[in-house]
């Protein structure tokens, strides 16, 4: 006689794994296996027609670390993250505070802030090209009204990266605003009343009451912004292609260029692994944040 409890348990286990298997097969094919394969590829030399690929250990990482271009790309990406993350979060917060207040044309304002979110980065690149083009671009024309000289925003190393950053902030801020807007609407109105009775200024209320209550949202948005600072690179294909002289080159574009333009998969793989290590650090922040959120419930 089989114990009915045991057989029930066994059946549950079989059902569980059966239900999971389609997703697990796909995840294995396009996430787990490629991750391991990337590590493996990064340990081999690039095969040429004369010399087949051979095991070289950490040689690819060493040559990456000795390559000044790689460090330039890392530096660029750090600047990219360092500018777009705080800028988009602060602008998103300001947008949300405004869009939540009693202002005229509020629904127009909200839609205007949010619209870039639904556009593809490639289209965003095209739209901004009209702004940046030297001579007849919008920025140059506005500058011209004030007698400023023409600036080749995308064509000179000093400005190309910042021009790219601006597009990213434009694209992201409205998206993050939505999360702040939702959080603002959960703040009970009696807090504002209490603050008014106490004679607290609007500034004090925002700084001391609203911002601390928005902390969990800020953490969530922060993690998203960090991931985006690796992921959002499509507009480079339109605006600068990483140039001039790699001044606006970012890591993911660098990986793409090495793998699919220069056909140097091992170097691309080694770069990928380094990016994945950074992303797993972000993951650690995220899991901490999930822990914190559960305390709020």
């Amino acid at each position: 006689m089989i114990d009915p409890y045991q057989s029930h348990k066994r059946r549950q286990t079989i059902y569980g794994w059966l239900l999971l298997s389609p997703a697990l097969i796909m995840l294995t094919a396009f996430a787990f296996y490629p991750t391991i394969a990337t590590v493996w590829t990064s340990l081999f030399s690039r095969g040429t027609r004369k010399r087949p690929s051979e095991f070289v250990g950490l040689e690819n990482y060493r040559s990456l670390f000795e390559d000044p271009t790689f460090w330039l790309v890392v530096e660029n990406n750090l600047w990219y993250a360092g500018v777009t993350i705080p800028a988009s979060i602060i602008i998103a917060l300001v947008m949300a505070l405004w869009a939540n207040g009693k202002i005229p044309a509020r629904s127009f304002v909200r839609s205007a802030y949010f619209t870039p979110t639904v556009l593809p980065m490639i289209a965003a690149g095209n739209l901004w090209l009209f702004f940046y083009t030297p001579g007849f671009g919008v920025l140059d024309q506005i500058g011209g009204l004030f007698g400023l000289p023409s600036v080749n925003w995308l064509g000179q190393p000093d400005t190309a990266l910042w021009a790219v950053c601006a597009v990213t902030v434009w694209k992201e801020a409205g998206f993050f605003m939505i999360f702040y807007l939702a959080a603002l609407q959960t703040i009970p109105p009696d807090l504002k009343e209490a603050a008014d009775i106490e004679g607290a200024s609007r500034w004090t209320y925002t700084w001391r009451v609203v911002l601390p209550l928005l902390m969990p949202t800020t953490l969530f948005v922060l993690v998203n912004a960090m991931i985006n600072s690796v992921k959002l690179i499509d507009h480079l294909f339109i605006l600068t292609k990483g140039g001039p002289s790699d001044a606006s080159m970012l890591l993911l574009y660098y990986i793409w260029e090495n793998a699919f333009a220069f056909f140097d998969a091992p170097i691309a793989a080694a770069t990928t692994i380094l990016v994945l290590i950074v992303l797993s650090l972000v993951a650690a922040v995220q899991f901490r944040f999930i822990d914190r959120r559960t305390h709020y419930r």
Binding site: F30, A31, T35, L252, A259, S280
Partner: peptide, 11 residues
Amino acid sequence: LFILPEVLIVE
């Protein structure tokens, strides 16, 4: 969630 498909393009 963090091993983004975008990053694993090579493999």
